[in-house]
Design a protein around this nucleic acid. Sequence first.
DNA 1: CTTGGTATTGGACATTGTCCTATATCAGCT
DNA 2: AGCTGATATAGGACAATGTCCAATACCAAG
Lengths: 207, 207
Amino acid sequence: MSNTKQDTATRILDRALALINTRGLMDVGIREVAKDLGMRPGNVTYYFPTKEHLVLALMERLRSLNASTVPTGEVRSVKEFLDRYRQMFRNQTAFVGLVVNMVNVMRYPSLARTYRTIEIERMGAITQAISELVAQGQLKHISDVRIARLTSTISLVSRFWTSEASLHPEQKINDAVMEHYMRLLATALKPVCTKAGRKSLKEAFAS
Amino acid sequence: MSNTKQDTATRILDRALALINTRGLMDVGIREVAKDLGMRPGNVTYYFPTKEHLVLALMERLRSLNASTVPTGEVRSVKEFLDRYRQMFRNQTAFVGLVVNMVNVMRYPSLARTYRTIEIERMGAITQAISELVAQGQLKHISDVRIARLTSTISLVSRFWTSEASLHPEQKINDAVMEHYMRLLATALKPVCTKAGRKSLKEAFAS
DNA sequence: CTTGGTATTGGACATTGTCCTATATCAGCT
DNA sequence: AGCTGATATAGGACAATGTCCAATACCAAG
């Protein structure tokens, strides 16, 4: 074989993600991933010494996917803001097996450590975006307390919508479900929108 | 010993809940619970054949706690509505080890089956409460779609606030944190409140 | 004081994550 | 070509876990 280390590691991650997305993080073992790839469990641990390393690598993939697909820089309109979240939502569906289980993923010490800072930045980014939208005349001037609450709501919805959806197993996660939770974000924003903001918000849902 | 079956089963549940609340569902094993009670693991499985049975019993406890502490019947004001949720929030903190991990709890087939119906009732109860508040002149008349979205937001926040809080490990879950998430519920309600509704909402937070 | 059900022990089993040593494979050098 | 060192894979071990089962202890009723 001409498999380089990179190749095999990638194949392991691909297969592991696919299995985790269908069967769930807790029900997918190293042995199952290995078997599916026609290799021995010991070989998987050669590339990823522990399951924690594997999950960490997958989360890094999600982070990198977000970095490459979600625009950064100043947010100029409510539509832009929501479009960024729509892209993040899409990315989350590709890693749904991990994202639904965020609470357990974060129990891995290395992930908790790594994402402690990311977490703070995440909240900070939302708060900043809201400030920018206020400056742009898209949102009304509101108190810091209300900004904090809006931030918290957006954070909670955007992080746990897949978990909530997973509790209604009769409906698979698809674009319609995703749009439903996008609407919840919009609903949270709407009361603090200016007239211009409301117009932009409407455009975010013009199919 | 004069331990009856009921006694020992209760002691097992008490200990298991305490351990799960501090160390998390996935990190607490039958052996640990048994050891803490000075008995053998096999004896725990005598009362609860599988971990699933144990978790099922604990969830039944939570359900029963809610049944005995959260008023039922028609909701007459926004304050009443929020007070019910405040009580549910309190109850959730007593079972936080399970509630933060709802996604995994529901992976147990028997729990998924049992709570499928409870889940539907839960959503239905929120929707009905909103209708009642509209009838009471506490909330504005809003479309079914908006009712559905409000229901979804309330459901999501009230189910996953502990999970969100657990991702900020620097702050332990306490009354202040609980009130923060209560405020998120209130913020979701406020835009659809009538004048009377807003007054009642304010009373819900008068310490 | 026997008896029958309840409670508890002690140990087995399969499965899991992890680890370690031996072997295979292959690229680069002479 | 043949050696060599690093990389890759196999094979099997280990401890811990959930689960199960047979043997024993206990205890209340007859």
